[in-house]
């Protein structure tokens, strides 16, 4: 049984396994240049549209200002310190001066 399986695996490897035609032909690589030119223009427009949307969103967001948070109550699960960080007392992104 095991030899039969090994044999059939070997046969596959021999006859077809390394055949380059087994490589899947990538469908859109073989499509005509015209389609790609069309897609290029389409995605270029989508990118510009995305950039425009993001710019508007960014201006709106940044002009709003960010909310100031109150210091939370010192619950035991907040600001956990088992030992000092290798670089000092404050965590990264922790020195907040609002």
């Amino acid at each position: 049984m095991a030899t039969a399986m090994a044999r059939s695996a070997l046969r596959t490897a021999l006859r077809g396994g390394s055949r380059p035609s087994a490589a899947p032909k990538r469908s859109f690589a073989s499509s005509a240049g015209h389609d790609d030119a069309y897609e290029t223009a389409k995605w270029e427009k989508i990118t510009y549209l995305g950039i425009a949307t993001c710019t508007v969103l960014a201006i709106y967001n940044l002009s709003k200002g960010h909310p100031h948070h109150e210091e939370p109550l010192p619950y035991s699960y907040l600001h956990i310190r088992n030992k000092e960080f290798p670089w000092g007392p404050d965590g990264l992104f922790e020195s907040k001066h609002h």
Binding site: L14, R15, G16, S18, R19, P20, S21
Partner: peptide, 8 residues
């Protein structure tokens, strides 16, 4: 041509 046609 395909260089590997002589295989298998």
């Amino acid at each position: 041509k395909n260089l590997l046609d002589i295989d298998n």
